[in-house]
């Protein structure tokens, strides 16, 4: 299943001005799943393990060569998530986003940041 997962897609604000904050949206179609099922609600804990788990473990954000953010994740995130965060346009450089899942598989995408206006 994991080999069919496509790389993430990045979208940024259309008009990025120097030293202004802009939005970065990244969509990653990943089948994150807790692997849990509620088979019995009479005792604690109410969930049992039903399937193997798969989830995104880390999202790393690089701006130019610099690591600027890290999102540590668990299987409590929805599948095919869309993450939105902000960056300050300090330089014209690529924004690179790396995803690593619980099997150690790695995906990346990048978007060139150019100032307009």
């Amino acid at each position: 299943m994991a080999e069919k997962i496509k790389p993430p897609r990045i979208r940024v604000s259309r008009r990025i001005k120097k030293n202004k904050v802009f939005k970065v949206k990244v969509k990653f179609d990943h089948p994150s799943f807790t692997g849990l099922a509620m088979a019995d609600d009479t005792t604690e804990p109410v969930f049992n393990r039903a399937k193997p788990v798969t989830f995104i473990r880390n999202m790393l954000v690089y701006y130019g060569d610099e690591l600027v953010s890290r999102l540590s994740l668990s299987s409590g995130i929805a599948d095919d998530p869309l993450f939105t965060f902000k960056l300050k346009a300090t330089k014209e450089a690529p924004v690179k986003i790396v995803f690593i899942d619980n099997f150690g598989k790695r995906w990346e995408a990048s978007k060139e940041i150019k100032f307009k206006g």
């Binding site: 610099e66 998530p81 993450f83 939105t84 902000k86």
Partner: peptide, 13 residues
């Protein structure tokens, strides 16, 4: 500080 604003949007279970 490069984030400019402390903001995160996502979808949770």
């Amino acid at each position: 500080p490069v984030n400019g604003e402390a903001y995160l949007s996502t979808q949770i279970r």
